[in-house]
Amino acid sequence: MLRSEVNLGSAVTDLQHQMASSDTVCIVGSNSTDVAPADTDASVLQAPAGLISYEPDELMISLFAGTSIADVNIELQRANQRIVVPDWGTIGGAIATRRNGLRESHHLTLPNNVLRCTVIAADGSLYQGGGQVVKNVSGFDLVKLVVGSWGLLGLIVEVTMRTEPIPQVSQWLQSVDPTASDQVNHLYKPAVITHVNEATFVLLEGNEQDVNQEISRLNGFALCDMPKLDRSLQMDRLHHLSHDMPHSIERSIRKQFDPSNKLNKHIATQRDLLT
């Protein structure tokens, strides 16, 4: 069971001091994502771990960002809930790298499930975006900006996530006939469709009878386990951007948020985002 850590305020304050007093900072989670090596003289900062609050009836959980996703899901399973994030690394790491898993085709992907986050900025100050409700258009959306920002806009220390009920059944299927792939387009809102080499994989979730009925409509597919995928295939956007040049707005944002180029220099260099 996850320990409730409501008294980690001092750990956050310590991190703020370290951030303010360091010239170069490398932000890490559990090092589950491969990136270029950080500068050896960088201060390494890591968010604390622990549960802040969990309200199953509100479908909402608040955590320190260093909490491991595996631990979060164990906690959530007790209330028959889950967060839809691949089950490795820390929650802060998943948010910073926008590690969505395969659910690109699903409307409620990771960015839409982060309701609030608190960030230590490059100058050591705290800023917060979002709120502890499921719907919110109060002010500019710093949450969307921080999700997938690779530590270039600060260290995420606290997050509130939307949780969801675990569906009655989840079943993966794999195409065994290459001409069968198109059939997945006629399914009603499958949770995942993904293509690996020649095969099409589909994840059906929901009511057991519905899932069985959908399966019976698929010819040339066989039940299978969750496909084993190279982790780097799962939304490692840093390596999959179509342009080498950064967007002009990205540089402006970096300049506003980290004027002294302190944060995750190794990643900023890779994306040519030093200003």
């Binding site: 926008r98 960015p111 258009v137 500019f140 959306d141 969307k144 900006l145 999700v147 997938g148 920002s149 690779w150 270039l152 806009l153 956007r237 840093l238 951007l241 179509s242 342009h243 950064p246 967007h247 002009s248 707005i249 990205e250 944002i253 994306r271 985002l273």
Partner: peptide, 29 residues
């Protein structure tokens, strides 16, 4: 069309930051 007068595309492929996500809800600003 940015306030500078330049035209640009905001999508998932051409930036690391989610500029599309930041723009939605920015109330025309």
């Amino acid at each position: 069309v940015l306030p500078s007068g330049e035209v640009c595309i905001l999508d998932a492929e051409n930036s690391l930051f989610d500029l599309r996500g930041a723009f939605v809800g920015s109330e025309g600003m």
